[in-house]
Design a protein around this nucleic acid. Structure first.
Lengths: 190, 190
DNA sequence: GAAAGCATGTGACCTGCATCACATTTATAA
DNA sequence: TTATAAATGTGATGCAGGTCACATGCTTTC
């Protein structure tokens, strides 16, 4: 399935757009290809775009002062990624985004998204819906962190993203769970 | 300042509405008063509304199987609160909301919010903006959790909400920070 | 296909924070 | 005001998970 179709399906699941409207919306997205390991947003960058994944897998992550990495999100096809704090507030990136595998994305600038949102009410509705989803998911994850130990978080991850386990290295899984790679290793052996 | 003015200022900071439009929007909100300790949303309730705080202080929280409480948010005047997962997805509440002090709120149903969003583009824009804010804040808090120990989270809280410290009991502060009340006590004494 | 570089497994040890226990101080209600 | 309950402080103890160290296995790449 090509990138355009993936985006179209994604939007039409939530809102109604006729062909002409969708073409207009789509014309604001720029297809881009990346190789495994390539960095899309680096810490300190000016962030002007967000990315809709159509193939492959990205991660968004934060690196602290001790160079320890924390993964906020894995982005598979049909998911969006960026440093939203930087994007919305026009500040430098603190969150980075890079490619876990070769990847294809559709890139849209913040300015173009805002333009489309103000021109087409349905598009604004779509983005409100999408952010609602993200907000609820972030809250759930926060509770998961506060409430559960590493073992429970690990089991939850297996249930929620069984595919991920084969694609992604254990180190990255550990960085997503917020435990050391040693502890993760001990969770599913010993 | 009365409830209507607080809501008006809050909306007009982000969007343009003429007096007639604002009156129409406002007519969908129902003012409600609560006493300290009163429960607004209890676990298991059907959730049909969200609440805009105009006076006092609410908390939204989760209670786990061991009866331990985790606070997601304190809601002061100008903040919104509900169980958004339950509200959007029409499921029973897992998050509760109650009053830390006597409080005044403006209540709007999910149905009415959606109606206003579809009738008035600017209102949809407002709610997209609001959820964006919430999403970014939730992500920041998640990182704070993954990255920092209890002491740092405590110091961060003091910086972010110095007012809260006088209003809210240490137990609740601890439940917000995700540490035991004993540990919190030791952080600022010993 | 050898060499260099990652990813993973596993032991030893340490530490931050939870839990339990109980004293003390501060609210709330009768 | 007094009685009862709730909030807070503080010691003793236990454990989940971090860190360091090193061995083994798996990929790249030249």
């Amino acid at each position: 399935m090509n990138a355009e179709t993936i985006l179209k399906d994604h939007l039409l699941k939530i809102i109604d757009l006729n062909d002409e409207q969708f073409s207009y919306v789509f014309s604001h997205f720029k297809p881009m290809s990346f190789k495994k390991g390539q960095v899309i947003i680096a810490e300190g960058d000016k962030v002007s775009c967000e990315y809709f994944v159509t193939a492959g897998c990205l991660k968004s992550f934060y690196i602290n002062d001790d160079l320890k990495m924390f993964i906020l999100q894995f982005a598979m096809p049909g998911w969006w990624a960026s440093d939203y704090n930087a994007l919305y507030n026009d500040i430098k990136a603190t969150i980075s985004v890079d490619c876990i595998t070769d990847a294809e994305v559709l890139c849209i600038s913040n300015a173009d998204r805002e333009k489309l949102c103000s021109e087409i009410h349905a598009v604004e509705h779509f983005f409100r819906w999408r952010t609602n989803k993200g907000y609820v998911a972030a809250q759930k994850r926060l509770l998961l962190f506060m409430n559960n130990d590493a073992k429970h978080r690990y089991e939850e991850l297996l249930n929620t993203y069984p595919q991920l386990y084969n694609i992604v290295s254990k180190q990255l899984i550990a960085a997503y769970l917020g435990v050391s790679r040693e502890t993760l290793s001990r969770l599913y052996h010993g």
